[in-house]
Structures are given as structure tokens and as C-alpha cells.
Design a protein around this nucleic acid. Sequence first.
DNA 1: CTGAAAGCGCTAACAT
DNA 2: ATGTTAGCGCTTTCAG
Lengths: 336, 336
Amino acid sequence: MVKIKDIAERCGVSIASVSKALHGTSDLNPNTAEYIRNVAREMGYIPNASARLLKTNRSYNIGVLFVDDTSSGLEHEYFSSILNSIKDESEKQGYDITFISHHFGKDHLSFFEHAKYRNVDGVIIASVDFKDPEVIELIESDIPTVTIDYVFDGKSSVISDNIQGVREIVNYLVQCGHRKIAFITGEDTSVTRNRITSFYKTCEANGITVRDNYVKRARYHLPKESGIATRELLALDDRPTVIMYPDDYSLLGGITEIEKEGLLIPDDISIVGYDGIKLSRLLRPELTTFVQNSTEIGVQAAKKLIEIIEQPKLSFSESIPILGHLQKGKTVKEIK
Amino acid sequence: MVKIKDIAERCGVSIASVSKALHGTSDLNPNTAEYIRNVAREMGYIPNASARLLKTNRSYNIGVLFVDDTSSGLEHEYFSSILNSIKDESEKQGYDITFISHHFGKDHLSFFEHAKYRNVDGVIIASVDFKDPEVIELIESDIPTVTIDYVFDGKSSVISDNIQGVREIVNYLVQCGHRKIAFITGEDTSVTRNRITSFYKTCEANGITVRDNYVKRARYHLPKESGIATRELLALDDRPTVIMYPDDYSLLGGITEIEKEGLLIPDDISIVGYDGIKLSRLLRPELTTFVQNSTEIGVQAAKKLIEIIEQPKLSFSESIPILGHLQKGKTVKEIK
DNA sequence: CTGAAAGCGCTAACAT
DNA sequence: ATGTTAGCGCTTTCAG
């Protein structure tokens, strides 16, 4: 590998001059600088990130924490899409992406230790258990962080606006004449709590009193669980006219059960998903779902983190909401 | 950040001893070593990967090249699933994952240069244009590489066995009584060529002469294109009884067109996908598709790369085939 | 068994 | 305008 010293020798200048020329800055003679740069290019010089880091304490490397005990964070389209846009935006700004884990050879390292070990300039945290002490340790450390879909006091985050999402869904349903609205939720997280609150609030605003047994808890991305909840809802005396699902994937578990009952969608019962997976428009009937803007979430997360890294003094901590939009498909019937 | 020097001072020993104690190796007095390790732990010592790398030239970092000019490599479930298992396996073995790009600040770096810049120990290459000179440069360099679904002479690769996949599909179709089998393929890649050859071969082995207009070219993951090809196939005088699609996602584009024609699946026409996306079992009718073992592909790729990195002398270049399995759903009719 | 010292490649103050 | 030099934190001969 050709290094600065090699260039210096070839050019007959000092390594300091080469370093300066390469940075374009400082008061080198423009001609010398130009000459050095040419030679460097010719020799195929590539800087060594580690050596530079050792001096500057800047790695231009961003850590991403995408863990899930089911080890499938990346298998959710929502998250892989976010990762993809984090990657695009970061690279555009000259940062690379390294996954943070807690492995270190055969040993265990906490997330914070791992981030330190790899010298990342900052970390974007998504799809983790935000109650995990290791996650909290990382967030409370001196490493810049941005969380996705979870807010820590005094820290920056990017939040898919679940309150808006559920509000738009419910309002649309009401507009279609529905008043018996059931809601199958995901496991208890802040995202879920926001959605539930928004659900009750919007129902109330529309003069609808929510029956307790219309709200069922399941878990995200587990069609089986949503299927069970669906069965329970269908068994009620006063069956809902529409069921809202925690995500599009779970909704399919619901469809299975609905069809088992011999019911037609949307004629006998309406359903609504969440996420807006790519397949949602290809399915028949086309899904009515709330599309989360995962690309924008990734972009904003990367932008915010880089801002914190590069201008810590000018960057205030904020929670950036990202709006989505309702995709009107064919799974909701206009009644009355 | 606490460093070796700090530990040395606290213990009243030299930094060399600390380093040795930390590595467990060498001929330090076991007690001293133990003592040093305890102090280190107590002080919360975390090694600095960059400093170590500078000396050892080993980063314990693996680069992954997942690019797509449509910038959606990660948005394909097949690839995000592979990435996920590469990540799991690598971390298990003490390696981290960094994405290779060709960005460097505002400048451009070739993939090879970028890999050098980040000092990765090796690179796993997937979902790229394997004809790209930059990709070839990287593969022909001295950096250990493993490619996925593409073979370079003398280099190691992990290959989803597309020959087997198509063979199993065709044999199954024949077994179900089909002889008029159409095949919509993806764009021209080695994967596609293997599939096509396997298609012709297996048909021939079953005494079936493939009609030229039964083979249509579309592109992967573009349901619209497969939809168009489907329309063309349906318009033929001698319509096929079954259509094979390049992937499950594209198949949905086919379904749309088939339903537009007022045909029923599988009664009027049978269809078969490829990939085995998670949704395939949830769709109705449940998809008949060939499930690629993406998890195993990722695991093997990581294992092979680490083997090349750690035992270059003992590792010979090989192409590791990964078998998948046929998932029999409800989209293929038994005829006659 | 332990320590001194060189140096990995680079940057940046400080000379000149 | 250019060069000297001192490290960044770590590993690793080589001496003692």
C-alpha cells in the first residue's frame, strides 16, 4: 500500500507537505500542492482511515444498532428500508456504516463498549428493546445518538408519526360509515401506546365509545397472533365492522381466519393494515393501509446524527416526526 | 477512554506487560497477569480497534458490497435475509460488518480503494453488477472475497442452486400433469442463464419440447414486466397450462393480469414463483414456489470468507452450492 | 518473567 | 512556503 511517506520521497518533499497538499488547505505553494496531488493520484494513494482516526479521533463511521432478540430486525421490510436509506444518506455525506453488536472475538462487549472499540462517530438506534440497560448506557454516553421510533429525554430521535397514522385511519373509517372499529395492537411499546391513545382519542372525537373487547393485544409481525385475535373478534356477539391490524404482515394472518369463517373482505368485514409494505398494492384485494415513510425516516436520522457529530454546539436535541399517508385500497367497505 | 498506559501506571508495570496480560499469551507470571486483567476490567478498559489494526493489519471487520443501481439491494427480502445471516455469523466469530461504498467524503473511491481505506479483512459481494470493472478490480485484488450467486474463476463463492431449483419445479409440474410450461425469466445474469438451461434440460428429460414463445424475458422484482409477459402468454393460441415466474414478487404482477382476464388460479392456469418470501405462505392461494435458503447462503459466505482470512494456506477456492426446497402451495393444479 | 523501545500511517503544532 | 517532530494507542521484538 502506498503511503504518504512514499509520495514524499518521490516528490522530494516532507511528509507534512504531502499531508497538507492532500488536504488542500494551508499555505502550500499551489503548484507544489498540485504536483504532489498528481503524483499521489498516479501512485494510487489511498489514505488509511485507522491511522487518521488515531490522530483525529474522527472515524467518519456511523454505527447502527439494529437488533432484535428474534434476530430479525433486518427481516422486517420497514427496518431494512430504513437501513437502506440511512446507508444512502450517510454515504452521500462521506460516512460509512458499521453494525454495532456485542460481540468481540469470543467475548462480550456492551453496545457502548463496542461503539467505543470501533470508534464510531455516532450511532443510530432502531429496532431494539429500548429498556435494555445496554441501550440506555449507550444513549446516556457521550457518543452522539439518534433513536428511531423512541424518544429519550434530551436526545434526538426520528419518529414515524403513529398518532397521525391511526388518526387518519380512524377518520377514514368513520367517513366510510364505520363505527364498530376493532383494533389489534402490537406488544407494549411506546409506538403501540401512541397508536392506542390516538385510537381512543380519534374515536372519541367522532363520538364513538370504544368497547373494551374491541381492543386486542397481539405482537408485531406474528400473523398467528393477529389471527387468534381476529378469531376472538369475529366470535363477539356484536362483531366489529372493521379490524385494524398492527402491520400488513399480521393482517394476512387475519385474512386467513376471516376466510376460514367464510366471510368476504370487504363485504362482510373490512380490514386495515399498517406499514405499507411494497406488496400491499399487489395483493388482491389491494390493502388499505397506512404507509410509513421509511425512506424519509432513514434520511432524517442520518442527517440529524451527522449534524450532531459535526456541529454539536449548533444542534439541539429534537424529536423529528415523519408523516406517512393513508393508502386507500379495497379492503374497506363503505357502509350505509 | 482508559488505555493500556493507564492500566500500566495503576498496576506499576510496563505497558508491554499489560498488553501481554490482556492477550493471555506469553510468559507473564500468571498472578501478575491475573491482577492486571482484573484492574483492566475494573477500569473499564476497551481496546482501540484502530490502534491495534495499525500494528497488526487485522481489522476484524468484513466489508459487504450490496449495491444495486436502483439502490435497493437491501429492499429485496432475499438479500436482506442474506445480509442478516452474514451479520449473525460474522459477529459470532468476532467480526463486524461495514458496508463498502464508493464514497469518500465528497470524492469517489473505487470499491477496492474503499475496502483498503477501511482496512477490511475481506469482502462479501452480492447483489451487484458483476461485470462492473470496479467489482472485478476488487475481486482480482489481494483482498479476500466471496461472491454470492456468481462465480469468478479461482475465487470462492456461495451459490444458490438455481439448476436444482428449476429442475425441481419442472419435475413437479410434469408430475402434476403439466406439459405446456411457460417460463418468465429475469434479466440476463448467470443466475438467469442457469435457470434457463436447467429449464430446457429438465423439459427435455421429460420429453417436452419447449415452444419458443413460452419463454419470456422480464426483469426481477418488477411485477409490471412479468405482468406484460403474462398477458402475452395468455394471448397465445396454445396457451400454457402453467407459468413459472422469476420471483414471488413478480408473480403477483402476473396474478393481477390473470385475474383481469377473468381466469382462476389454479383452475384455469397454474403459477409458480421463486424465492419463498415469508409472505408466500400467507397469501391465498398459498404460493407454490422454490424456497432459497438465504440464511444458509449468508452463513456459508461468512464462514468461507473468515476461513480465507484466517487460514489462507489451508483454504482452497470453491463454489459452495446451497440447496433450497420446493414449497408446494395451492397455485398449481393437478391436471388430467 | 518483565521492560524498553521502535514503529504502524497519519496530522498538526511549531519551527525555520 | 516548507520541514521537523511529537504523538494517537497498540503490539512485538529484543534486552535484561
